[in-house]
């Protein structure tokens, strides 16, 4: 092995107005074709998508774009919000995704989100289906039962990075690649103080979509839901229950994967996402 290889991913910043304030948002992209916008999980950043971003087959047909949400990764908090408690809401999350897509001038992109990204995809399907070509929710459900107290995530006598990573470590399937597991957890160790907790405000409190998903029209915008069998946070049963209430939604349980399919075991995830991306291409030809 020799050094010097440069990956085809390009990273840039775009200025996006969200709720009246300019946010400097970092995004990475590769490929050309149908725009595919990828949303990272709570408390992490867009590096989770780096394997998808360099997939030679996918990038032949898709312009794959992954961005760091404000307060995450290389996207700083909005200038006016330093010092205030971060709490993600359904309205802000939805506005952020739409503003980002508009800022880049994307024409009816596909959006794929994982975890909180999967949940917000459902809200996009409810409120803005016309704006999107297809929606893909990974580890997505209208609601799931909490399994720990988020107060532990941000307090001065507990190391935030260590506890966040240790909590989510159990959501990774047990026999995936060790390096991918370590990299997935590294993202959690690097999150800003209180950011994972603030994301979970959306997940646990503000973003309960029970009773709202039944109106999703998949004829307007196809909806795919894929969940790892080892995800005990958003369980396969949570996803299947959600999908059962949405006529025409396609649900798949992914073997040997957990809550972070694209980063914890990219090769295994590829087996499941490739047919979905092909299905979307095939629908364009009809």
């Amino acid at each position: 092995m020799t050094g010097g290889f440069i990956e085809p991913i390009v990273g840039r910043y775009v200025h996006v107005e969200i709720e009246g304030e300019i946010n400097r948002i970092y995004f990475e992209e590769n490929g050309s074709g149908i725009p595919l916008v990828c949303l990272h999980t709570a408390g992490s950043d867009a590096r989770q998508w780096r394997h998808l971003l360099v997939d030679e087959e996918f990038t032949r047909n898709y312009r794959i774009i992954a961005f760091d949400m404000p307060w995450h990764g290389k996207s700083n908090p909005p200038d006016s919000r330093y010092g205030s408690e971060y709490r993600l809401t359904t309205a802000t999350y939805t506005a952020t995704i739409r503003a980002f897509c508009n800022a880049l001038g994307l024409d009816r992109p596909v959006v794929m989100g994982c975890s909180i990204g999967g949940r917000i995809v459902l809200n996009l399907a409810i409120e803005h289906a016309r704006d999107f070509r297809a929606l893909i929710g990974l580890e997505a459900a209208d609601f799931q039962q909490p399994w720990y107290d988020t107060a532990w995530l941000n307090r001065p006598d507990v190391h935030g990075g260590e506890v966040c990573a240790a909590l989510v470590s159990g959501l990774i399937a047990p026999d995936g690649p060790e390096t991918a597991r370590n990299e997935t957890l590294w993202g959690y160790k690097q999150g800003g103080p209180g950011i994972f907790k603030g994301d979970l405000y959306f997940y646990r409190v503000d973003g309960d979509l029970r009773g709202r998903t039944g109106g999703i029209d998949v004829n307007q915008c196809p909806l795919y839901l894929l969940t790892g069998e080892y995800d005990f946070s958003c369980t396969p049963e949570d996803t299947l229950r959600t999908a059962a209430g949405i006529p025409g939604a396609k649900a798949t349980v992914m073997e040997r994967l957990g809550h972070f399919p694209m980063s914890e075991n990219p090769g295994q995830f590829r087996r499941y996402i490739a047919p979905v991306l092909q299905d979307i291409i095939d629908k364009q030809k009809l």
Binding site: Q145, W147, Y148, L167, S169, G170, L171, A173, P174, D175, E229, Y230, F232, T235
Partner: peptide
Amino acid sequence: PRPPAGWHDLLALTKR
């Protein structure tokens, strides 16, 4: 060696 899903983490066990 490969624990069954839902039995693979201490907090998965408390949840169930």
